[in-house]
Design a protein around this nucleic acid. Structure first.
Lengths: 257, 257
DNA sequence: GAAGATGCAG
DNA sequence: CTGCATCTTC
């Protein structure tokens, strides 16, 4: 089974890119973040030629997640369900051929001294409780998406410059690590423990792509029974180099199931 | 001598169209309206390959006029000069090979009961005085541009519906007619007194182009000595049908001089 | 730097 | 419907 994740930064602007990638790679599941489209305006018609089943939850200008699957999902649910802000446009859970797949767009956090950063940190603890409620570390499950955290120094260019950045700050990495520690393994790390490979290059940083000044903040994780079966993981640079790119690119993983 | 006029509705957005048209038609003079670009940002570099000389006056988001000439103009001046608002981004006068050419973007007028409509009506009377000051009806001269007036019922689709429209309202037609009566002749009317031929189709009116629901509000006029020498007048529909069109299209006239 | 929202204008 | 400006977010 092939699973991919991609922060599209507006699905409507990235339709040609997404359709093209689906056709070329035919993943079983593609998780999208930052679709930036309300459900009423979701481009179902434009995506129809792909043949993928569409599961989505969005809002007016920001956030928005979607999961595209070759077959219809068995089950679908949106957002956190602990009684707090559900943030439906940031989390979709489906069950696909018996396997729970959680697609998240973790809050970015703005600045470390802002309420948004507190909200981000809480989001990770809420998510860990969400895993407790809906999954078991002993059963196959996948968690993927834009985590807005570079877990290790190697996962960001010039880490020493980014100690106060909300995507590398100690507390964010700790919050992410503790949620991972619930029972997930990063499948990229599993296959390539020493490789530097980014998934995001800021539009603002001039020539960030050519100079490869990026971040690895998009991740695919699996519980042990599934992580053991990972056969291939890759970042596809081509869509980031294409015309009218997202600032992120595709990450995908293949599992022997 | 071949003279053309075109309301571009943003010159920067219409650069490919304009360059293409210049290459195909090679007019001696092309008058543009609604360039929507400040002089600092005028796309001189992009237009350089055309070889045309560039005369322009614009402002931030609205209005803006330009005259492109095969040879450098003899003389150039901008705006009305009666001590009132000069509205430089609405009028350019050049002398080209001895012939005065006035390119105007007449105020649209918003609604007939608005101050903007009063301003439009005054603009015509000010323009007539401007002609008095700078031209003679007995000498060759050209006045062209977007006049925002459909002079006759045949010049607008469903005229009976547009009696209260600022581009067809009685007072606007009268103001325009009185300025024309200073000493100009509409060269399109001279050659085709009975022909219905629009130059503008509203973006808003759905399928205005397919249904040919348009307006003839762009005009080329000449004083008698020149009007007598007109050999050809045409509206080119192709640019309006092209991809990313302006809501107006090109009108051109050929004079035997 | 890129995207969407809003407001203004034609 | 299209274009520009301003604002906000990442």
């Amino acid at each position: 089974m092939k699973i991919a994740t991609f922060n599209v930064n507006s699905l409507r602007k990235r339709l040609p890119l997404v359709l093209d990638w689906l056709e070329q790679h035919r993943p079983d599941v593609l998780c999208l973040q930052e679709t930036k489209v309300q459900d009423e305006d979701f481009p179902s018609l434009a995506l129809a030629p792909s043949g993928y089943h569409l599961t989505f939850r969005g809002m007016k200008a920001y956030n928005g997640v979607a999961v595209l699957t070759r077959q219809p999902p068995d089950q679908v649910s949106y957002g956190l369900d602990d009684g707090g802000e559900p943030d439906e446009a940031r989390l979709i859970r489906i069950t696909y051929q018996g396997i729970p797949i959680i697609n998240t767009y973790i809050p970015q956090g703005y600045l470390i001294d802002s309420p948004k950063y507190q909200y981000k940190l809480e989001w990770f603890t809420r998510l860990r409780r969400y895993f407790d409620k809906h999954l078991s570390p002993k059963m196959p499950a996948i968690w993927c998406g834009d985590m807005n955290v570079a877990p290790r120094p190697i996962d960001v260019h010039s880490p020493e410059k980014h100690l106060q950045h909300v995507c590398y700050h100690e507390a964010a990495r700790k919050a992410y690590a503790e949620t991972v520690a619930w029972g997930f393994a990063d499948v990229f790390l599993k296959l390539y423990p020493d490789r530097q490979q980014y998934t995001f290059w800021d539009y603002r940083q001039p020539s960030s792509l050519e100079a490869n000044k990026g971040w690895r903040i998009d991740h695919i994780l699996a519980t042990m029974p599934l992580a053991e079966k990972v056969t291939e993981v890759a970042v596809d640079l081509e869509p980031r180099r294409a015309k009218d790119p997202s600032d992120h690119t595709f990450l995908w993983a293949e599992f022997a199931i």
